[in-house]
Each structure stands twice: as C-alpha cells, then as structure tokens.
C-alpha cells in the first residue's frame, strides 16, 4: 500500500514539475522575444524615424511614409468594416437571435475569424487589383476590412447578448419601435464592449502583412493617393528585414517595435474598457 502511495506521489510530483517547467519555458521564450525586440527597436529609435522617408539602400532615413500609410489603411479599413460588422452583429443578437441564418452566420464568421489572411489578400487581388489593373491603397484597405468584419461581428453579438432583456422590455412597453430600442437602448448599454471589439480589430489589422503584399503593395515615396500603391509598416518591415543592408534591417526592427507597442497599447486599452463594463 505504501509503495503504491509513494509511486502516485512521485508521478504527481513529476507531472507538476513538468507543468511548472513548461510555464517557465513558454513564458521565458516569449519574454526573450519581446526583450530582443525592445533592445533592437529602441536602439534604432530616433526622431528621424518619424520625420523622414524610407531611405534607399545604404542611407539613413525614417519610416514616415509607411507609418502614415499604415494609419490611412487602418482608418479606412475600420470605416468600411465596422458598420457592416456592427449591423450584422445586431441582426444576430436582436432580430434573428433564434434564426437558422444566425446560427449559420455565426459558424461562418468564426471560420472567417481565423482564416489565413494571405487568402484574403488573394481574394482582394482577384476581385479588385486584377480588374482595376494595378495595385492600390484602396484594395489594401478593403483587404484589411475583410479581416475587421468578423472580429466586430463577434464582439458586437456577444456584447448585445449581454444586455439584460428587461431593458428591452421596458423600452418596448413604452411603445418604442424595435429599431429605436436597439439604437437608443441596446447600443448604449453595450457601447463599451462594442468599442472594445473595434479596438481589438484595429490591433489585429495593424500587424497584418500578408493581405497587403499584393493589394496595397508598397511605395518607397510619399504618396497619399489611394488609387496608387501605398506604403505600410508591416510590408516595409518584411522588405527591409529580408534585405542585406544593415540600415534597412535596423529600421525593420524599429518598425516592428512601433507595431508591437501600438498593438499592446490597443489591447490593453480594450481590456481596460471591457473591465469597466463588467464592473459597473
């Protein structure tokens, strides 16, 4: 009996030791990546990064045009994707909560949520770049919007489902039409959560590279023309990191740092927003 007991204890200790080791290894590994990123990124950080254009090989320069390009693409993508996402989420949570359609859309949406982003790039290339005959910032923005939609749909639906039904019933009993109840009562109650969803979608697309490679392409020069190729941070990082020039590689690290900090800031804000909602 004692022998069995000792064996069980030993097995438990081994398993728990392994799980602790896994946690240390896993977290350590990820900390290592962030550490290198901070180190290399801050080394190259200077004012010039935000004020100068991307340089030709072998010269000093900055990341101004990709930063601005990324901002434009992101804002446009959110402007295109968010309304569709919110409306679709509204249908699923309000009008068609028990519909077959809702069930189906939810399933498809969840698949779109984790579909490979490079396929989205191919899709937009097929429907926009090829017919138009050239790469364009607009195509890049639409490609990113396709990634925004499922994120916003998901969070909008989840957040509206959390709105207590008595709120809807009270508004309806005053004779308020359904559409007004949704817009004036439900949206207001779920505002923080829906905003969280939008922020999360921004965080998601600000680092997306694959869908931009053959939609927005890249532009070495200052350009705000949406009908022409436009520069973006992730694509510049991709190009510069794979280049043999050390100046470019340094800028790639700095760009990576900027993206990471932006994404972390967005996700932390989103979490904080979501937290205030659940507490109140």
């Amino acid at each position: 009996m004692n022998k069995l007991y000792a064996a069980r204890r030993r097995r438990n200790q081994i398993a728990m030791g392994l799980s602790l080791a896994a946690t240390v290894i896993g977290l350590g590994w990820l900390v290592l990546i962030l550490g290198t990123l901070l180190w290399e990124g801050f080394n190259g950080l200077s004012v010039a990064v935000f004020t100068e254009m991307t340089p030709p090989p072998g010269a000093a320069g900055g990341l101004l045009n990709p930063i601005v390009g990324s901002l434009i693409l992101t804002v446009l993508a959110v402007l295109i994707g968010t309304p569709i996402g919110i409306l679709a989420g509204t249908y699923m949570a309000e009008y068609g909560r028990y519909d077959r359609l809702t069930f189906f859309v939810r399933f498809i949406n969840d698949i779109l949520l984790s579909a490979p982003s490079i396929v989205v790039g191919l899709f937009i290339y097929e429907v926009m770049v090829a017919p138009m005959g050239h790469f364009s910032g607009l195509a890049g923005a639409v490609a990113l919007a396709v990634i925004v939609i499922p994120v916003v749909v998901r969070t909008t639906e989840d957040m509206l489902l959390l709105v207590p039904n008595p709120l809807r019933e009270a508004a309806t009993s005053l004779g308020t039409p359904r559409a007004v109840v949704i817009r004036r009562v439900c949206y207001r109650a779920a505002r923080a959560g829906m905003l969280t969803g939008v922020l999360l979608s921004v965080a998601r697309i600000s680092g997306e590279t694959a869908p931009l490679l053959f939609t927005a392409l890249n532009n070495q020069f200052w350009s705000l023309d949406l009908n022409a190729p436009i520069s973006s941070l992730p694509v510049v990082i991709f190009q510069f990191a794979l280049s043999p020039y050390s100046d470019w590689q340094k800028l790639a690290w700095t760009g990576a740092l900027i993206i990471t900090l932006a994404v972390l800031a967005l996700s932390i804000t989103a979490r904080a927003l979501a937290a205030t909602r659940t507490e109140s």
């Binding site: 309304p83 569709i84 996402g85 919110i86 409306l87 679709a88 509204t90 249908y91 699923m92 309000e94 009008y95 068609g96 359609l101 809702t102 189906f104 859309v105 498809i108 949406n109 698949i111 779109l112 579909a115 396929v119 989205v120 899709f123 429907v127 396709v146 939609i149 499922p150 749909v153 039409p177 359904r178 559409a179 007004v180 949704i182 817009r183």
Partner: peptide, 22 residues
C-alpha cells in the same frame, strides 16, 4: 423599423456572401 431590420439582415448575409465570394 422594417428598414433597419432589412439593413441588419443584409449585413449578416454579407458575411455569408464574403465567404462565398472568397
């Protein structure tokens, strides 16, 4: 009300159309 309902339904169907279009 009807317009809003149709609008949201159209958006939901857009998600399906998106996958189909891909």
């Amino acid at each position: 009300d009807v317009a809003f309902r149709i609008l949201t339904r159209a958006a939901a169907i857009t998600v399906l159309v998106l996958l189909g279009a891909v």
